[in-house]
């Protein structure tokens, strides 16, 4: 699992690659929350196109960050989730958070 944070405009894109389970979620959470605290972005986008496995720990991860961003008027979205991530997100009733768009490219940042 790897997480890469890209800052752009007034948002942060967290590109998560690999497997999201309870073990990995703890590390992803730490990295994202550090950035949220410093930047309080109006929008946090989870790019989940490269997620190869996800269980309900991924839902806890999304909802926890949603709670934080909403506390200061921000929001979260999940971009291009892979089929396995999409399945769990839909099961959790969070499909309204899904957005589609072009692939994140860190070279285009800022």
């Amino acid at each position: 699992m790897s997480v890469e944070l890209i800052s752009r405009d007034n948002g942060i894109v967290a590109v998560i690659t690999g497997e999201i389970d309870h073990h990995a979620a703890a590390q992803i959470r730490t990295e994202i929350d550090f950035a949220l605290e410093r930047q309080t972005p109006s929008l946090l986008i989870f790019d989940m196109s490269g997620v190869t496995f996800m269980d309900s720990s991924g839902i806890g991860l999304i909802l926890g960050r949603q709670r934080i961003t909403e506390s200061y008027g921000g929001a979260v979205a999940v971009k291009n989730p892979s089929p396995c991530a999409r399945r769990i997100i839909t099961l959790a009733g969070l499909s309204t958070l899904i957005i589609e768009g072009k692939k994140e490219n860190k070279n285009e940042a800022r």
């Binding site: 979620a25 959470r29 269980d55 309900s56 720990s57 839902i59 806890g60 991860l61 909802l63 926890g64 769990i88 099961l91 959790a92």
Partner: peptide
């Protein structure tokens, strides 16, 4: 508090 979504058994069932 540990950010468990409460969906473990729901995922297993599905």
């Amino acid at each position: 508090e540990e950010e468990r979504a409460g969906l473990g058994f729901a995922v297993m069932e599905s």
